[in-house]
Each structure stands twice: as structure tokens, then as C-alpha cells.
């Protein structure tokens, strides 16, 4: 009813103008939210960051000193995660796109990947604690935390690799097979190289996801502030360090600095992914 009344008061032209204006406003709000978050963290954190902040160990539970062990911890965890999730993800994607017959098993696999992607990170963390830390006896360690992170990013590496492989033109494959190459030779020498940019981008975005993840590693990687000497030792990742600094009110200043470093790492990763995509897009654009 209100629609009819409004229709009479305002001409369709005016309603249209107002509606379009509101749509512009909603887009502006979204961008504003993003800019204010990044802006605030960078503005308050940038003053804290210097060489000693990045390269010193924390003192007094993080109230002073730097965040070097946390940065190292994060990098170790992410390395374990991507080195395991990467090959498994590509393998799974190759199987699903090139080998999988259309049957129940394939559907279960696809469903499993979907399911894993939907599991809340804290549930993966709990599982990591029960399975990796306690049952397999890995303890709180880089290995436990890294593998738990792998469980989380695996579905993304599978999907990204699948997408990338699907875009490889069928003609390339047929050409290789026609020349007498086996299926695997074709995949390794033709399909995977052409899918490489997409796969790499997927991996990098997976790394970005793993860097910021906290709930998964809290009860798997431990919270030691010492530098690790092997993957069987515990570490405290940067996001967990930030959480502790902020929630226990240890130091606002250090928390801003850590947040800015974390954000910087994630944004850097994101830019690299986009740059790789662009580079290959323009290159393939020139070729055609």
C-alpha cells in the first residue's frame, strides 16, 4: 500500500534517482568501512614499527621489546601448512578434473571438500588438539599447528587448482595426447604449466588465510615466546600474540604494532596474488 502512495507523491523518475543514490551510498559505506579499518590500524601502528620491533624478542610477556619470535612462528606454521596442503590440493584437483569418473566416490570426494571448507575454525582447532597434539603425540608444536592449518586451507587449494586446470584449453591437451604422450606426461608437461598462474594465485591466497588464522593454532601450536629450533617445538603465532596483547591488556602500543605488521603481511600477500594474475593476463593477452 505504501508503495502506491509513494508512487503518487514521487514520480518514477525521482524514485529512480533516490534509489540509485542510495545504491551509491551503500557502496561508499562499504569502502569507507574498509578504509577506516586499514587506516586506523596503520595510523596507530606504524609509529611502533621499527627494526628493533621486528627483530627483537618480546620482554615482560610482550609489553616491551619486539615480535620477532611471533613472526618466525607464523612463517614456520604457514610453511608447513602450504607445503602439505599445496601438493595434496593440486593432486586432488588433477584427479577431480582429469581422472574422476562420474560416480558415487567422486561425489563423496567433492562433498568432503565442501564439508571441510564449512567446518568452523575452532572445531578444527579442537580436533587438532585431540588428534595431533594428544593422540599422535606431536605435542604443542609447529608440526601440529601447521597440519591443523593445512586442514583448514586444503579445500581452498583444491578449489583454486581445479578452477585453474579447468581453464586450460582442451586443444592443448588433445595435441599432446595425439603426439603419443601418456595422460600423466600430458598433465605434467602441458596441463599443469598452463594452469600454474591460477594455482600459484590460489596458493598465495591460501597463505594469506593461514597467516591470519588464530582459533586453529591456539591449542595446537602452543604459545611459547622462544625461538623454535625444530618443528617439534611450540611457537606463538603473530595473530595469537596480538590476541593475548589485546585481550589481557598487556600493551595497546605493542598490540597496534602487531596488528599493523599482521595486516601488512596479509595485504602484501594479496597484492602479490593480484600482481601475478595481472602479469599472466597481460602476457596471455599479448600472445593471442
Amino acid at each position: 500500500m505504501s508503495r502506491a502512495i509513494r508512487g503518487r507523491i514521487f514520480s518514477p523518475d525521482i524514485t529512480d534517482k533516490v534509489a540509485i543514490l542510495l545504491l551509491w551510498a551503500s557502496a561508499a559505506i562499504t569502502v569507507f568501512i574498509l578504509v577506516s579499518i586499514i587506516g586506523m590500524i596503520v595510523y596507530r601502528g606504524i609509529g611502533v614499527i621499527d627494526i628493533s620491533f621486528l627483530l627483537d624478542s618480546p620482554r615482560m610477556s610482550g609489553a616491551e621489546g619486539g615480535i620477532f619470535p611471533a613472526i618466525v612462528g607464523t612463517l614456520c606454521l604457514v610453511a608447513v601448512a602450504i607445503l602439505t596442503a599445496g601438493p595434496i590440493g593440486v593432486g586432488a584437483a588433477v584427479y577431480l578434473t582429469e581422472y574422476a569418473p562420474d560416480n558415487v566416490v567422486t561425489r563423496i570426494i567433492t562433498f568432503g571438500v565442501e564439508c571441510l571448507a564449512g567446518i568452523p575454525s575452532i572445531v578444527i582447532g579442537l580436533f587438532g588438539y585431540a588428534f595431533l597434539v594428544v593422540y599422535l603425540g606431536f605435542g604443542f608444536s609447529i608440526l601440529s599447528g601447521g597440519l591443523a592449518l593445512m586442514f583448514m586451507i586444503l579445500p581452498w587449494t583444491v578449489r583454486a587448482s581445479e578452477e585453474a586446470i579447468k581453464t586450460v584449453p582442451g586443444g592443448l591437451k588433445d595435441g599432446s595426447l595425439a603426439l603419443g604422450a601418456t595422460k600423466w606426461q600430458t598433465i605434467r608437461q602441458v596441463v599443469l604449466p598452463s594452469a600454474l598462474p591460477g594455482i600459484t594465485t590460489g596458493f598465495i591466497l591460501g597463505i594469506g588465510k593461514a597467516i591470519g588464522e588464530t582459533a586453529v593454532i591456539m591449542y595446537t601450536a602452543g604459545s611459547s615466546l622462544l625461538l623454535p629450533e625444530s618443528i617439534f617445538e611450540p611457537v606463538r603465532a603473530l595473530p595469537y600474540h596480538l590476541y593475548i596483547l589485546a585481550s589481557e591488556g598487556i600493551s595497546d602500543e605493542m598490540a597496534y604494532g602487531s596488528a599493523a605488521v599482521l595486516l601488512g603481511m596479509v595485504l602484501l600477500i594479496n597484492f602479490i596474488a593480484v600482481a601475478i594474475q595481472r602479469y599472466y593476463q597481460t602476457r596471455s593477452g599479448l600472445r593471442h
Partner: peptide, 11 residues
């Protein structure tokens, strides 16, 4: 999408 949830929580 890329902003870590702990950073958003801190914000």
C-alpha cells in the same frame, strides 16, 4: 576478505 578476524576483533 583478507583482513584476519583477530585484527577485526582488535579494531
Amino acid at each position: 576478505v583478507g583482513i584476519p578476524s583477530v585484527v577485526l576483533g582488535f579494531f
